[in-house]
Design a protein around this nucleic acid. Structure first.
Lengths: 312, 312
DNA sequence: CGCGGTAATACGAAACCCGTATCGTGCCTG
DNA sequence: CAGGCACGATACGGGTTTCGTATTACCGCG
């Protein structure tokens, strides 16, 4: 029993006429008769009562008709499912994101993606950049939205990743409102380095930590890291408590309490959000569609807010 | 997409190893790779991530896996269904019967058939012999249990029918209890012909009417038919009312009221139950199984009651 | 009793599928 | 780091399957 035979059988069962069925199947009548005959020999029963004048289903034929209808419908739906899947209309997409992305492009991106790919099950996983890079390599994430990571960082002969900058914003200093620098229009690297700093564990977000280190390295003295915290919110808590200052993306402004002052850094150093994925899966339609949403949302947000940021 | 390809695909998906999958499929590895590649080109996506070291399903592959599993299961069950059907384990069987068969073999037959072919849906249709012959010819009945019909009766180039005698019993005269002949051990044809007779419409049961006519034709005078009725029960009602006598199969004794006497006919003429079916469908397993039950039940009933019948 | 229509059969050509041989590649080992 | 090994991909020839054309066999009708 092969699918071709079932299709032939259904055509004859529909037409009850070998000639017309063959025509519908774009073939000639003799091989059609042969294939039907083969089915009949396989099952050990006639499927059609046929004379030269009349073709009729036997009871056994009617039984096969029901089964064949189910099978062919199943096959058609499988074909459609596969087509929808490769076209990116259905399926699953796991996207990781750094919490700070929540305050910039992410909400718009998600709204856009849900509109464009309504049937794709989108899983959003909040993770630090470092965690995302790991999960991207082992495939637990399809797309990562990370801050300042270098995808080429060689995890010893690991899966190659590809990144694309989707958003760039200024780095700002967050200071307790009472701090001498708190009322400034901007502060220099030299000035901020003198303040005790609240930083992050390099393991969890190597890109951002390295970026901040790089920016601060313009100063003659090294920064004095007085505290490491995992979340921006925690960092802001320490700042509000007067423990020290912290360098953060400008978009954190949205969750700044009155007790904290945000002061842009002189020289307008920036930090970047990158969309990262496995180079191998660059042809994945859902991932590509998602990143397309990222580009579009970032573009319109730039139009709205002005190419970079930081007016208070 | 062909079933073979789906089977190959599932083998590789199970083994995650082309060589072992090929072995399991009793074929060599190269054509297996080719067929998988063909599927992938058809769907426009890779189904396996494969290096020489590792074979893994892609997400698209997992989607196809689910569909393929369903399809192959559906095909297997279709094959099993067809096998069960041609083996006569399942299906439908329409059997017609004359009401008088209810008093002889029929209950045993049905019990036997239900035991032997439990999953076959048996439809029992009470019909006169004439009605059954018509429905047998146009296929509305698979098997008919008729009385004294001649299947060769040429319904003008119609479907040929085949009959088999399954039960033979004596014809008896039914008389009002007060009738002069009612106390006799037996009556002759000459004697009964003198009594007004209750008969049946020849159109509905030509075989039985002709048989009775044939038996009575041994008498010098023709019978005096005073009433025609459709059902035995009605005939007995007329007899009980003293309207006349009626010739019936001996098995009617079971529904004789006290007001009617049953007297065997001299010469022990008999009437026969026949199982009839289309000659064309003599290979139908369910019909054959049913008739087998008829033979077996009739045989054991003969053993129990003695080859023919009629002791009171 | 021929004629139109239809399914079955015969047979040669094309397509398809499989097996053997071989290649390319990634991983392991000495 | 060079060689060996395991494994999937490719090349190619042979056998099987399937198809199309031509023909036959059969049925119903005028």
């Amino acid at each position: 029993m092969e699918l071709r035979q079932l299709r032939y059988f259904m055509a004859v069962a529909d037409e009850l006429h070998f000639g017309r069925a063959a025509q519908k199947l774009h073939m000639s009548q003799p091989p059609l008769s042969v294939q039907i005959g083969r089915l009949e020999r396989e099952f050990g029963t006639t499927l059609f009562d046929r004379s030269t004048r009349r073709v009729q289903l036997t009871p056994a034929g009617r039984h096969l008709q029901e089964s064949a209808r189910r099978i062919l419908a199943e096959v058609d739906s499988a074909r459609a499912d596969m087509r929808d899947y490769v076209d990116g209309l259905t399926g699953q997409l796991s996207v990781g994101f750094v919490s700070s992305a929540n305050y910039t492009v992410l909400p718009d991106v998600v709204r856009l993606f849900r509109a464009r790919s309504a049937k794709v099950a989108l899983t959003l996983v909040p993770l630090t950049s470092g965690e995302q890079m790991e999960r991207l390599r082992d495939g637990r994430l399809d797309v990562g939205i990370v801050r300042d990571e270098n995808p080429a960082a060689d995890h010893v002969s690991s899966v190659p990743l590809t990144a694309e900058v989707v958003f760039e914003e200024r780095l700002v200093a967050c200071l307790p409102i009472g701090h001498p620098l708190a009322q400034r229009i901007e502060v220099t690297v030299d000035e901020i380095v003198a303040v005790p700093m609240i930083s992050y564990p390099r393991l969890l977000m190597p890109g951002f930590v390295d970026r901040v280190t790089e920016v601060l390295s313009a100063a003659p003295h090294a920064a004095n890291v007085i505290q490491e915290v995992v979340h921006q919110e925690t960092a802001l808590g320490f700042v509000a408590a007067g423990v020290g200052a912290s360098i953060l993306p400008a978009s954190v402004r949205q969750l700044i309490p009155a007790s904290i002052a945000v002061v842009p850094l002189a020289g307008a150093p920036t930090t970047r959000l990158l969309a990262v994925r496995q180079t191998r899966t660059m042809d994945d339609v859902r991932g590509t569609a998602f990143i397309e949403c990222l580009r579009d949302a970032a573009a319109s947000s730039r139009v709205l807010t002005g190419s970079q940021t930081s007016k208070r």
